[in-house]
Amino acid sequence: MPDPHLTVWYNTRCPVCDAGIDWQRSKLVAAVRAGRIAFKDINETPDALAQFGVSLDDVRRRLHATDQDGRLIVGADVAIAIWRLTASEGWLAAVFGNRVMLPLTRFGYDRFADLLFAWNRRNGRW
């Protein structure tokens, strides 16, 4: 099987992150089976993205992914890449990933991710 077009690293210990990825994965069953996308728990391989200088806490704070060319994608850009692969959600990528909205999308994503990360730390989800 060829390398996935997108390998998404996320934190399964975060109930919000885990539920969101499970929900998204269910929409992408064919893409997962075809090897176009893969979802990986960073807690199983904490140093998986060390070559990029990415720590375990970095991935616990924000989604990270690598594309088929081995480039690192972070945060809102990962969500947009997933939406592009999801037939029913391409419009989300178009709306939130366009030149005008992308800075706002990234800002909103980052603030939400910061709050979620702090909530998970307070609740001992490590």
Rank of each mutant, 00 (worst) to 15 (best):
M1C: 00
P2D: 03
P2I: 05
D3H: 12
P4V: 01
L6S: 01
T7R: 08
Y10N: 06
N11L: 00
R13A: 07
R13N: 05
C14R: 09
P15K: 09
V16H: 03
A19N: 12
D22T: 11
Q24A: 15
Q24C: 12
Q24V: 15
R25L: 08
S26L: 11
V29Y: 10
A31H: 05
V32R: 04
R33H: 14
R33M: 14
R36D: 09
I37H: 01
A38E: 10
A38V: 03
I42H: 00
I42C: 05
N43I: 07
N43E: 00
N43Q: 03
N43S: 04
P46F: 01
A48I: 07
A48Y: 05
A48K: 08
L49Y: 03
G53F: 06
G53T: 07
D57A: 07
D57R: 00
D58Q: 13
V59C: 03
V59K: 03
R60P: 11
R61P: 08
R62N: 14
H64W: 02
T66V: 10
D67R: 01
Q68I: 13
Q68E: 13
D69Q: 15
D69M: 14
G70E: 08
G70A: 03
R71P: 11
R71K: 15
L72Q: 11
L72H: 08
I73D: 05
V74Y: 08
A76R: 04
A76T: 05
A76C: 10
D77W: 03
A79M: 12
A81C: 06
A81K: 06
I82M: 10
I82H: 03
W83D: 10
R84W: 04
S88M: 10
S88D: 12
E89Y: 14
G90C: 02
W91H: 13
A93W: 02
R99A: 13
V100M: 10
M101A: 15
P103E: 14
L104T: 12
R106H: 06
F107K: 06
F107V: 12
D110P: 04
A113F: 07
D114V: 00
L115Q: 14
L116V: 14
N120Y: 02
N120V: 04
R121G: 08
G124I: 01
R125L: 09
